[in-house]
Design a protein around this nucleic acid. Structure first.
Length: 495
RNA sequence: GCCUCCAUCGUCUAGGGGACCAGGACGCAGCCCUUUCAAGGCUAAAACCGGAGUUCGAAUCUCCGUGGAGGCACCA
């Protein structure tokens, strides 16, 4: 047994939109690593850009994580020893480290206006050189700069990136990443509103919160060297970093656009966690599915529950290449997890879907229904529609549909008539009591089982395709079943 | 344009020099089971991006090319 140190891992979303598949996967891996090692999973809200805040987003993220079964040990709403857990509430902390960076010559004040910066950028693009800060304020005298700041001049703080040499940082699944310092810009660390940007805030918080492992999206790879440089400038030990690859749209061609994400709903899919429940997906299935997009356990195990994942997860089985989202496989996992639920549990999960479909059903009746639909639904929301025939007073089959191919209405009537006679004599209709007798009846009348059951199925359910016949009759009860058969008989007479 | 990352069936992936005429899963096709539809079982088709090199031997290591992705904001 390896002795591993408990990991402190954080999920640090910005509350600027919906929690989506990519974020959920990151959070899942964070959580798994923390639980696997007996450490803590921390939720930190990165809300330093006040302009982009979306009301309700933070709550959605927290709710989404709980729905998925990824609870956090520390976070804005539950507190913890390392709070506050909202970056907007940590200004003083960043101010202190910004001061240190300036004092030690690792950062400088910059008074360039956004206007001028924009012109510089355009110029550089015209000259076909990569856009970067031209270094005007880098050369400013420190005391002079301080005076201007004290005088209230609008300013930002920039990192003073070394002009020469190479920075090497280490990613757990990609190994060493070398970047020449001349390619690292003098990034802005603190905006003119006094709030830090991600690079500073995240680096400071990860240290302050004693985070041990940073698992984040690969969009941070380009600025990874900067974070390393900041960490070193502050004299801190570097953490373990893992940059996960992005999710690509199903075609594999690029990230999903806002528009494409919205369009997915038409097909009953979504990349947003908030939609999953409505669409009939189980949190277990979401978790199982996203866990396997970028991570694997061995060459054959695919079904995982959360405890399985906690038990089996390890960073060294992560895959660095981008993964296309495969919703078909999602459906498969959902169906598998539905079948894995026991009857009571599935009935419980199904109840809200019947309610919102306007179908009044008792828990006990649902427990009766579950066995005949469990293998037949891929999403929970399919259940009310699939079983609608069980909740009507009568069904209204198309008379033509009652007659199997190659048979006459007279023959169909014959089947129903004789069956009626049998059912009327029975106390209880179910698979055991009715199936053998009806099968025998069909044979005696000279029909195949397929023909016999066809007629009865359409008469009872009103559909050519339905959940099992005799189980349906059992749920309907003798009276209702007989009623439906009589009605079918009438219909056949009218043909 | 510049920087970085990535590269095995359509998709998710196993593979970390010989165990690979490359394994699993989804999907697709066929068959079996079967009262319909599912579920289940079996079978099939389907991939190592290209080129050099290292090596007795490369899907696995190195380099180049190509392709794909991400980034180049007072956003995260």
């Amino acid at each position: 047994m390896d002795i591993v140190k408990p990991a402190r891992v954080r999920f640090a979303p910005s509350p600027t939109g919906h929690l989506h598949l990519g974020g959920a996967r990151t959070a899942l891996y964070d959580y798994l690593l923390a639980k696997k090692t007996g450490g803590q999973f921390v939720l930190r809200i990165e809300d330093t850009d006040q302009k982009r805040l979306v009301p309700g987003s933070e709550a959605e993220i927290m709710h989404g994580l709980r729905w998925l079964g990824i609870p956090y040990d520390e976070g804005p709403d539950i507190g913890g020893r390392y709070g506050p857990y909202r970056q907007s509430e940590r200004r003083d902390i960043y101010a202190e480290y910004t001061r240190r960076l300036i004092d030690s010559g690792h950062a400088y004040y910059c008074f360039c206006t956004p206007d001028r910066l924009e012109r510089v950028r355009q110029d550089q693009q015209k000259q076909k050189i990569s856009p970067h800060y031209d270094g005007t304020c880098r050369r400013l005298d420190v005391d002079e700069a301080r005076r201007r700041v004290i005088n209230g001049e609008r300013h930002v703080v920039r990192f003073k990136t070394p002009k020469e040499g190479t920075t090497t940082c280490y990613d757990l699944l990609r190994g060493k990443i070398h970047v020449e310092n001349q390619n690292i810009d003098d990034y802005i660390l603190v905006k003119s509103d006094g709030l830090p940007v991600y690079h500073l805030a995240a680096t400071v918080d990860d240290h302050e919160m004693e985070i041990t492992h940073v698992i984040r999206g690969s969009e941070w790879l380009p600025t990874f060297p900067l974070h390393t440089l900041i960490t070193r400038a502050l004299g801190w030990e570097e953490l373990q970093y893992v940059h996960l690859s992005v999710f690509l749209k199903p075609s594999g061609k690029g990230k999903m656009s806002k528009r494409e994400a919205a369009d997915l709903m038409k097909d009953g899919y979504s990349i947003f966690i908030k939609d999953m429940e409505l669409l009939g997906y189980l949190p277990e299935a979401v978790v199982n599915w996203i866990a396997l997009m970028g991570w694997s356990y061995d060459d054959h195990t695919e079904f995982f529950t959360m405890p399985d994942l906690v038990d089996k997860f390890s960073l060294d089985r992560l895959n660095p290449s981008p993964a296309a989202i495969n919703f078909t496989k999602f459906d498969y996992f959902n169906a598998v997890h539905i079948r894995n639920l026991d009857i009571d549990e599935l009935a419980r999960r199904l109840l809200p879907y019947f309610e919102s479909a306007g179908v009044a059903v008792s828990f006990d009746k649902l427990r009766q229904i579950v066995p005949i639909i469990r293998e037949r639904i891929t999403t929970l929301d399919e259940a009310p529609e699939m079983t609608a025939y069980l909740f009507k007073d009568t069904v209204d089959p198309d008379p033509e549909a009652l007659i199997p191919k190659g048979m006459t209405s007279r023959q169909a009537s014959e089947i129903i008539q004789h069956s009626l006679g049998i059912f009327e004599e029975m106390d209880r209709i179910n698979l055991e009591t009715a199936e053998p007798i009806i099968r025998e009846l069909g044979e005696k009348l000279g029909f195949t089982a397929s023909q016999t059951f066809w007629v009865l199925r359409v008469a009872i359910t009103g559909q050519k395709v339905s959940p099992p016949l005799f189980e349906s009759m059992e749920i309907l009860g003798k009276e209702s079943s007989i009623l439906r058969l009589r009605k079918a008989l009438q219909k056949l007479d009218e043909v």
